[in-house]
Amino acid sequence: MDCAVNLSNDSAIRHMKNKPIKISKIIKLTNLTAAILATTLLWPSFTMGKEPSQTVGEEQPPTQDYIRTTVNNYFIPDVDVIRMDNNKLSLINALDDGRPVMMNFIFASCSAICPMLSHTFMQVQKKLGKESQNVHLVSISIDPENDTPAVLQAYAKKFQAGSQWDFYTGKLESSVAIQKAFNVYRGDKMNHSSVILMRAKPGKPWFRLEGFASPQAVMDEYRTMLENSK
């Protein structure tokens, strides 16, 4: 439901392999008809189990690396999360601390998608250099019963997470509520998808990168987002 509501106000761009479409070419959907059209076109790819499978290592047509949409607002649920240092805090406070946020959803025993997302964050962190101190990297576990703070600490260490990169766990119901709010809930952790969300500050739109955005693409999107939020 969140997806339908949010996307109705969205603009969407698609980055084809090595052919990013310039922002100026973004189709602006402003009227109701266009909104319905956008929702109709985008909805199937956000529905559980309806996504066409991509095959690693077998023949397939060239695919886009990622799709960016902007979402005016996600309704952040008022739930508590537990940071990997065992501190309990509200998700709203964790996200609204004034810093730009980059967020993904992972679980520690995931073998394919999450390591890719985490490696991407690791390299974005490097690329940001000193600036990384001003950005809040957030990874939320979608398998919180297994991903205890201790498990997340070990995971963070593996990906050389700096002090600005926080991993969160909590109750299973809280994790599901957060996933639903950000439209990444697919019914089960094994159905999860690769999404990076970023926002310049509270009240500003979220950039949603769906697919495999390279560290450089994430950096470029981040710069664009900061520029747009001025």
Partner: peptide
């Protein structure tokens, strides 16, 4: 080990499915 084939294609070599990503048997 993060680059090892087993990470995705698994111990049996029969692959896996994660999200909409199919890792085929090899």
């Amino acid at each position: 080990d993060a680059a090892a084939c087993e990470t995705c294609h698994r111990r049996s070599g029969m692959g896996s499915l994660e999200g909409n990503i199919v890792v085929p048997p090899i």
